[in-house]
């Protein structure tokens, strides 16, 4: 079962909902991390949101666009569900991503697609995650998908429904904003 492709899993889930559990197993950890990064921090809320995401995925299985990767498609649903959850709460919570700051810093430093914005390796994870929270939301969403979720530009474009060129621009601007925030925060220390 583990060798089954996403498309095969979708086909089987459409035959029998029992097999949908395989898709849940495959994506629940990734999506849990993703919606946590987007701001759904409380574990109970996170489970509720995850459940809604998977129910929506199941309802929309026939609408899965096979020209997309299944991963991009399911991230799109997760993203929209998380946004809708914020809207119900009327606020997108600001929290810290300390435990993720280090991995973000590594990912940013190893990004070879944009050499114009470089990051000081001496930064600590706390500084990075704090600066990330101050990046405008549209850039932050792209940075999270790119550097935490390791999605390609094309996949990010499919998740956020943006042209690929816009994703590239947002990544660059997001990194610049992140670097500016880091520099500003350093001055205030």
């Amino acid at each position: 079962m583990n060798n089954m492709s996403d498309r095969e899993a979708v086909a089987m889930a459409l035959e029998n909902p029992i097999f949908f559990g395989h898709i849940v197993d495959r994506y629940q950890d990734k999506l849990a991390r993703y919606i946590h990064r987007l701001g759904v921090r409380n574990p109970d809320d996170r489970d509720d949101v995850l459940q809604e995401i998977f129910v929506k995925v199941y309802r929309n299985l026939n609408g899965f666009d096979e020209t997309l990767s299944f991963s991009a498609w399911i991230y799109r649903i997760a993203h929209n569900e998380a946004i809708s959850w914020y809207r119900k709460r009327r606020v997108r919570p600001e929290g810290n991503l300390v435990q993720d700051g280090e991995s973000l810093l590594e990912a940013l430093a190893s990004d070879v697609t944009d050499t114009e914005v470089s990051f000081d390796q001496g930064l600590n994870a706390d500084e990075v995650s704090k600066a990330l929270q101050e990046v405008p939301e549209k850039y932050r969403d792209v940075l999270i998908l790119r550097f935490y979720e390791q999605l390609s530009y094309e996949e990010i474009a499919d998740v956020l429904k943006l042209p690929v060129g816009t994703v590239g621009t947002y990544v660059h601007r997001g990194k610049s904003a992140l670097k500016d925030n880091l520099d500003t925060n350093k001055l205030h220390l």
């Binding site: 909902p17 995850l50 459940q51 129910v55 299985l61």
Partner: peptide, 20 residues
């Protein structure tokens, strides 16, 4: 997360949720 797989499959069956 709690046993999400079981919860979701159960919900699909009890609420008779069907894909569009």
């Amino acid at each position: 997360p709690r046993d999400l797989r079981a919860m979701i499959v159960e919900r699909i069956e009890t609420e008779n949720i069907k894909p569009h």
